[in-house]
Simulated assay, not measured.
Amino acid sequence: MKIFAVDDDDVFSEILRQKLRLIGYGDVTCLQDPLAAQQVLAEAAEAFDCILLDIEMPGLNGVELCGRIRALPAYRHTPIIMITSLAGRQSIDMAFQNGATDYITKPIDTLELKARLHGVERLLDERKRLQMLEYQISLQTDVVPLDFAFDQPILVPEFDRGIEFHALQNYLLTLGLKGLYSVSAVAICIENAVLTYRIASRVAFRNMLADVGSVIEDCLKTESLLIAYAGSGNFVGIVTGTADWVPADLEFEMNAKMEEFSPIYVSERLPLPRIRVGPMVSNSLLSLARPSQVLDRAIVAAGSRSGLPRMGIA
C-alpha cells in the first residue's frame, strides 16, 4: 500500500515513517509543505492508496488540504486519515465534512495505527474488486457480473453529498463520550429496495441508489449533516443539534421528486423507489457502548421494511 503523509514537523514525520515501517508499511512518501503536497498528488503518475494529514500547518491547514484533495478525480474516494493533536469537536466536524475517512489524535499509538491501516486495506481490497468487475463489464467481456450483498454499504455513484459508511462510523467513534450526546441520527429508507435487489442487476440496483441519492441531495442541500449509505436500502445521517425539517413533509417532498424518475423505471420494468424518512434518534446509554448503534436505532425508528444493515437476505 502506497502511503502519502503530510506534516510540517520534521521530527514527527520521521517518527511516523518509523512506526509505519515497523508495522509493515515501507512505501511511504512524507512532505512538510501542504501546498507542495497538493501539487505532488495532482501530478503523480500513479495515485497513492492512502493519505495521512496533519491539521495545523502553515499556509494551508490539513482540513483545507483534505477538501482540495477530494476535488482531484483520482482521490475522490481515497482513504484520508487525519493525524493531529487537535481533539476538539469543531476540528473533528470540519475534517469529516471536508472528506476525512478517519481521525487519529497524537501521540500515535502504534497498535491503533496498525488497526486503522488494516481497516483501510480491507476497504481498498473490496473497492478494487468492484472497480475491476465494473471495468470488465464496460468492456462487455465474459466475466462474473458485478455482485455485492444486499446489506453491503457500497459506494453510491455520483452521490457527492454522501460519505462512506466506514467514515461515518469512524466519525462517531472519534467524537468521544461527550460529543455523542450532542448528535442525533436519522434514517432515509427505500421501502422496496429488497424487491429491486431481487429482480434487477446489481448495476441497476446501484443506479437506483444513485437516483435516490440525487433526491436526498436536492432536498437536503441546505442542511448540515453527514450522510452515508449503510446497506439494505438505508441511508443514515448524523445531525448536530436539531434539524430544520419535519420527517413527514420531507418524505412527501422526496417521493414527489422521485416521481420525476418514473418514466425510466417504467421503461426498465422496475419498481419506483418508495422513500421513508424516520424521526431523529438521540444517543442513549446503550449506544454509548457502541457509538454506531445509534445508526441502527435510527433505521428501526424509521420503520424500514427493507431490512437492517449487516443482516443480509437469502
Rank of each mutant, 00 (worst) to 15 (best):
F4C: 00
D9G: 10
V11D: 15
F12I: 02
F12W: 02
F12D: 02
E14S: 12
I15D: 08
L16T: 04
R17Y: 03
K19N: 14
D27Q: 15
V28F: 08
L35A: 10
A42L: 10
E43R: 14
E43G: 01
A44T: 00
D54Q: 06
E56Y: 06
E56D: 10
M57L: 04
P58N: 11
L60R: 00
L60N: 01
L60E: 00
C66Q: 07
R70G: 01
R70H: 11
P73T: 02
A74W: 01
A74R: 10
A74H: 03
R76L: 14
T78R: 04
T78G: 01
I80G: 03
I81D: 01
T84N: 01
S85D: 12
Q90T: 14
I92W: 02
I92V: 13
A95F: 07
N98P: 06
D102H: 10
K106A: 02
D109L: 13
E112M: 12
E112W: 08
K114N: 14
A115V: 09
R122Q: 07
L130K: 13
M132A: 12
L133I: 14
D142V: 04
L146V: 14
D151P: 04
Q152H: 14
Q152M: 13
Q152K: 15
L155F: 06
P157Q: 07
E158G: 08
E164W: 03
E164V: 11
H166P: 01
N170A: 15
L180T: 01
L180E: 08
Y181K: 15
A185M: 14
N192G: 09
Y197W: 09
R198I: 11
I199G: 03
I199E: 09
S201A: 05
V203N: 13
R206N: 09
N207C: 03
V212L: 11
V212K: 01
V215S: 05
I216R: 05
C219P: 08
L220V: 07
S224E: 14
L226Y: 13
I227S: 06
A230P: 10
S232H: 04
N234F: 06
A248H: 12
D249C: 07
N255L: 09
A256I: 04
A256R: 15
K257F: 02
M258Q: 10
E259M: 08
Y265E: 05
P271D: 09
I275F: 03
R276V: 11
R276D: 08
G278K: 09
S287I: 00
P291F: 07
L295R: 12
I299W: 05
A301F: 00
A302P: 07
S304Y: 08
R305Y: 10
S306E: 13
R310S: 10
R310P: 12
